[in-house]
Write a protein that binds this DNA or RNA. Structure first.
Lengths: 252, 252
DNA sequence: ATCACAAATTAACAAAGGTTATGGAGAAAT
DNA sequence: ATTTCTCCATAACCTTTGTTAATTTGTGAT
């Protein structure tokens, strides 16, 4: 059902059937949102967390002039802002990239489930920390890699995450982002992102056309982006195979 | 006592006297560590979290060639790796910058305290999320600011955090870091960090000599670094004054 | 089929930051 | 006092990335 993909394929977050069911019952509403909208403004107080069912969402920080730095991107099955439950106010904005379907989980309902179940609380706590782990990897990406490395690293990450939820076969996946989006993720300009994509193509590492990424040389791309998927805390491939759902067409 | 500074001056993490005391009793050991040592290697499993009492520590990710990107820096009063409690294994390394004094808090002891106290668990959960909030700010820093802006942003952050624990008067503070450290934090080379510090000095914004930072123009420096302290979740200055301990000499 | 608009592409040029190398200042060690 | 070592400072040069601007491609709407 709705929750099948929730926190799927994550080491140490093995939700039981019962836990999954309880979380599903905590959903107050399922909504569809338009692409490229800001859903929550930085600084706002929230008492509902958002579970992403379909599409892509992102979180970002803007500078004085409104230039964005994306600080995370979310694929189906992830809680976009579960951290709002203990934090209450957000220090960043949340937006949609594509048309999305989301489920609302009110914090009051979460509290009722979590207070009597310290183990489940610890699992969700862990889930919010994967965010922090990804931030660290993103920090490494923009702090230590050159432009080609950054984009390579990002594409490797998306490949790994989408594969974990059955939305990539390990080489090819739909990624409905513009070059401008990738620029906001990697801390580059759109013009240079374009140059970088050409370089990746000419190097025979990967190509991106019409929102489809095809990685021609996975090992080469990982190497170029100094990528190691440990920070994603995914099940190793063998284990995840048995847990994975059948391939889905795409996320838009 | 030991815990006076723990999570001090943080909005939404108002530990009660009893909670503070319980945490203090969970400490198994207090140790002194040498400067510039790696304390925990990335990937290691840990069952103890570290509370920093004195000195500076950091967490970092290395690239293939061993070049580091610091992903966080810690001042006294902070749990350096509380996130290891729900995560168990770390995706990054932990090291000392100066000589430090730390307290060990075994996870077994934490579990005993937290399981029956969902509110305290939520407070500590929140505390681990401040980390993620800082990572986002660091990501903004390296992704969207130029070299001068990055260093300005970093110095503003340290000023705010040290002020919150009584180690800065709001303009002047001890910061026992080399220019190479600042380079690893800001994603720059040491040579360029040196140029940047000169520019900040010549612009009359701040200067750094013999491990002491003096901010001549706080507003100007904040502006240059597009800095806003919200992400630190500190008490506003008025409130924190009454909670602050007397000024301490320094952290080494 | 045409129009309108967003996205991709490319070029010429400018600026920022990295690289390599060298010298100096200060602190601790002999 | 000399040596050694780390950190700081600076210069010359070069590579990468940003800037500005113009053109093309693709796609959905009418």
């Amino acid at each position: 059902m709705l929750m099948d993909r929730l926190l799927a394929n994550r080491r140490d977050v093995d939700l039981t059937k019962q836990e999954r069911c309880q979380l599903e019952n905590a959903i107050s509403d399922v909504r569809t949102l338009e692409p490229r909208q800001t859903v929550i403004e930085a600084g706002r107080h929230v008492d509902v967390s958002t579970l992403l069912l379909q599409g892509l969402m992102c979180r970002f920080i803007e500078d004085r002039k409104g230039l964005r730095q994306l600080v995370s991107i979310h694929v189906p099955g992830e809680f976009v802002d579960l951290h709002a439950y203990p934090m209450r106010a957000l220090d960043h904005s949340v937006g949609t990239l594509t048309t999305v379907t989301v489920a609302d989980v009110p914090h009051a309902a979460l509290k009722e489930i979590l207070d009597p179940q310290p183990d489940l609380a610890r699992k969700l706590w862990f889930a919010t920390l994967i965010d922090a782990a990804m931030h660290r990897a993103w920090l490494f990406r923009v702090g230590r890699l050159d432009a080609v490395g950054r984009v390579a690293h990002f594409l490797c990450e998306m490949n790994a995450r989408l594969e974990a939820v059955g939305l990539s076969d390990g080489r090819r996946f739909a990624l409905p982002l513009t070059q401008a989006d990738i620029a906001e993720i990697c801390g580059l300009t759109t013009v240079h992102t374009n140059r970088v994509l050409r370089q990746l193509r000419e190097a025979g590492l990967c190509q991106m056309h019409a929102s489809v990424v095809e990685i021609s040389d996975p090992a080469g791309l990982s190497h170029r982006g100094d990528f190691n998927s440990d920070y994603l805390y995914l099940y190793p491939p063998e284990e995840s195979l048995s847990r994975r759902e059948p391939m889905l067409s795409n996320q838009h």
